[in-house]
């Protein structure tokens, strides 16, 4: 890495946000992604790094009700936001209907893409409880899986959709 002249030393920025329902504060170097902050600063390793350039969706989190790739958002941009990660999906002592359906339909193999699929699918079913197969496939186009071939994932989301009604 380049030697940084002294006047250019970058200071960490204090950030305050709501994370999985809890008020959370952290210090972020401005060049760290939200994904890096979640995993390395806050120890929330449920969110996965896949491609780290916005193609695969493994790092999907929910920010103010919208799904985003956390690798393409800076940690400092979390200031004042309401963020939900995979750690916030399950209710205390149980599984979310999507998680249960993924287990029952064997909608995962290696599991790296799974947290991203769950966070994405949850946002869809909460906004559109009647989303049909076509809508589900289109919505999940930003989440890549290299194991299952997608059909099992779509079936699991459709099963959870019925459970959540």
């Amino acid at each position: 890495m380049t030697q940084i002249p002294e006047q250019q030393f970058v200071h960490k920025v204090p950030v305050q946000c709501t994370l999985n329902g809890q008020s959370t504060e952290f210090l972020a170097a401005p060049y760290l992604s939200l994904l890096e902050i979640l995993r390395e600063t806050l120890g929330l390793t449920g969110t996965k790094e896949g491609c780290n350039d916005g193609n695969c969706g493994a790092c999907t989190v929910n920010v103010d009700g919208r799904i985003v790739d956390s690798c393409l958002m800076l940690g400092v941009e979390a200031q004042g936001k309401n963020i939900e990660t995979i750690e916030g999906v399950a209710p205390a002592g149980g599984l979310h209907p999507l998680q249960q359906a993924f287990l029952e339909e064997a909608a995962l193999q290696c599991g790296i893409c799974t947290p991203g699929f769950l966070v994405s699918a949850k946002a869809l079913l909460e906004a559109e409880p009647n989303a049909d197969e076509h809508r589900i496939r289109l919505w999940l186009a930003g989440n890549l899986c290299r194991c299952t071939g997608y059909d099992k994932i779509i079936r699991a989301v459709e099963k959870a959709r019925e459970e959540m009604k």
Partner: peptide, 9 residues
């Protein structure tokens, strides 16, 4: 443009 995640930002 991109998927839903990209369109959010």
């Amino acid at each position: 443009i991109g998927g839903i995640q990209i369109q959010s930002r």
